[in-house]
């Protein structure tokens, strides 16, 4: 596909849930290899926005172009996007009836039409990368939350996506497990992956983000490099938000 254009481009995207206006003229461009952290209070539309990027939610107005393909009702464009974009969820969403290895090989085998042996070798290499190859034969229910989320990351990577979306990947974890997941995400960021990450982990944002986007009430209020955003917030809403999450920590 295209090699020079932006990885993701949102142009005046609007979305309503019934009468509720959840995305208001959201415009955002993510360059290839860029790491963007999206933060904001709950209900600000940040999850909805990243779910629109792989079309788990549909937008009603505006344009979303991912890796040169515009998101429309056309099923072929949907197929292309889903292959190129990996997603990690807050609640892991591993398939509990399949082993860790089967979780990782399912999509490569059936979507990428990869031979089983090759898919298993690929899955093992990613499980090693997230440092849990020894759990491959277990079921998700036998793993800790942190391990499950690392498997979910490996599972998404097995599709060799160009873009990774993270929807609050550490919010459902016990504090002692957050670090292992963040470490995995940091090493992924260092490998040059394009990442959009909804998270409140400000330390992670400082360390890896090229840009922080602050959303509130369905719109992008402010965005910029993490240091500038956290140390010299321009809008009152961001100041309020930062004071609230700092007090919370």
């Amino acid at each position: 596909m295209n090699t020079s254009g932006p990885a993701i481009e949102l142009d005046k995207v609007n979305k309503w849930f019934g009468a509720l206006h959840v995305l208001r003229d959201v415009s955002l461009t993510v360059a290839q290899g860029e790491k963007v952290v999206v933060c904001g209070p709950s209900g600000s539309g940040k999850s909805t926005m990243i779910r629109c990027i792989n079309r788990l939610e549909t937008h009603q107005e505006g344009r979303i172009v991912v890796d040169g393909t515009e998101l429309t009702d056309d099923l072929r464009s949907l197929d292309t996007i889903r292959r190129e974009v990996g997603m990690v969820f807050q609640s892991f969403n591993l398939f509990p009836h399949l082993t860790i290895l089967e979780n990782c090989t399912l999509a490569p085998i059936w979507v990428r039409k990869m031979p089983k042996a090759e898919a298993e070798a690929l899955a093992m290499s990613y499980l090693e990368r997230v440092r849990i190859p020894e759990q491959a034969k277990k079921y998700p229910g036998q793993l800790s939350g942190g391990q499950q989320q690392r498997v979910a990351i490996a599972r998404a990577l097995c599709m060799r996506p160009k873009i990774m979306l993270f929807d609050e990947p550490t919010s459902a974890l016990d504090p002692e497990m957050i670090k292992e997941v963040l470490d995995t995400m940091i090493s992924l960021a260092e490998s040059g992956m394009t990442m959009v990450c909804v998270t409140h982990e400000m330390g992670f944002a400082r360390q890896v983000a090229d840009r922080v986007v602050f959303m509130d009430r369905g719109e992008i209020v402010e965005s910029g490099p993490p240091v500038r955003m956290f140390e010299a917030p321009e809008t009152d809403r961001l100041k309020l938000f930062l004071s609230q999450i700092l007090r919370g920590h």
């Binding site: 792989n54 889903r82 591993l94 979507v111």
Partner: peptide
């Protein structure tokens, strides 16, 4: 269902 969708199944 969402996880399966996101994987392109």
């Amino acid at each position: 269902s969402e996880a399966a969708d996101a994987m392109g199944l």
